[in-house]
Amino acid sequence: MADLIEKELPSFSKPEEAMIFFSAHGVPLSYVEDAGDPYRDQMEECISLIMDELKSRGIRNNHTLAYQSRVGPVQWLKPYTDEVIIELGQKGVKSLLTVPVSFVSEHIETLEEIDVEYKHLALESGIRNWGRVPALGCTSSFISDLADAVIEALPSASPISTARNHQAENDPLRYVINLFFGSILASLFLLSPRLISLFRFHL
């Protein structure tokens, strides 16, 4: 994500003045405060790590976090994206680079809610320069990180069939039955192309 932000900042005439605006998908407040969902802490930690990386590259823009996509009458995580956009405009922020921090792909909440609704609200609120970082999508660094996470998890993972295989090994009769029917199925799979060819030949 730091790479994408760094790539997008030069689109502003004064990149150093652009506010980096992280907009994450919200969740009902009760999920966090009552059910103990770590989502808010994870978002804040994620943004802290991104900003640390940007600072290591000499990028020291101001930033803020808000939550979008709330529905229904219950209270969701605050601050809300639409309210923060209005407040930033009132405070004199003129350039806003929006980062869809919790969205890994482009969809209605980025293409419509952010690109259309929030952009319109920002311009109405006095923000003159609008930019948006694309979702991670299939960026090579993101895919590599996912692959690394899978590889790290593999040693602790066990195949679903382990228990069944263990039972079969301890039961000689079941082992013989499995071996017998397995051999038949394997033979059918191996012979099926030849059988199909013979069938076609005799038609």
Rank of each mutant, 00 (worst) to 15 (best):
T110H: 02
L96P: 08
H120E: 11
L136R: 02
I86R: 15
A122V: 01
E113S: 13
E117I: 13
D145H: 09
L123Y: 01
C138W: 08
I108M: 13
V116E: 06
Y118C: 06
G126E: 00
C138S: 09
E117G: 10
I114N: 06
V84M: 06
P79W: 07
Y80N: 03
Q90V: 09
N129T: 06
T98P: 00
Y118S: 04
S95V: 10
Y118E: 05
I86F: 08
E112C: 08
H120W: 12
E83L: 13
I86N: 08
E124C: 12
S105F: 14
L123E: 06
E117P: 10
R132G: 13
G137K: 11
T98F: 01
E124R: 15
V101F: 09
E106Q: 08
E106F: 07
S140M: 12
G92K: 12
P79V: 06
T98K: 00
I85L: 05
E124A: 15
V104R: 14
Y80K: 02
F142E: 05
V84N: 03
T110K: 02
L123G: 02
S125V: 09
L97P: 02
I86M: 10
G92I: 09
E87Y: 00
F103E: 03
H107Y: 09
K94C: 03
V84T: 12
E124F: 12
I85N: 01
G89W: 05
T139L: 08
L146S: 07
E113V: 11
L111K: 07
L96H: 04
S140H: 15
G92L: 08
E113D: 13
K78L: 15
N129A: 10
N129Q: 15
E117F: 13
T81Y: 01
R128T: 07
C138G: 04
S102I: 03
P100E: 02
A122R: 01
V104A: 09
H120D: 15
V84W: 00
K78I: 07
E87W: 04
G126T: 02
E83I: 14
R128Q: 12
N129M: 10
V104T: 06
I108R: 14
F103N: 04
V99Q: 14
V133F: 01
V99C: 12
G137I: 06
T139S: 14
E109G: 07
T81C: 03
S141L: 07
W130M: 00
I143C: 09
T139G: 13
E113C: 10
E112M: 08
R132A: 08
L123T: 05
V99W: 13
Q90W: 07
S144L: 10
S144G: 13
G137H: 09
I86K: 13
P134M: 06
V93Q: 04
S125K: 06
P134F: 07
S140K: 14
L146Y: 05
S141H: 10
K94T: 07
K78E: 13
V84F: 02
S140P: 11
P100D: 06
V84Y: 01
P100Y: 02
S102Q: 04
K94F: 04
S102C: 07
E113I: 09
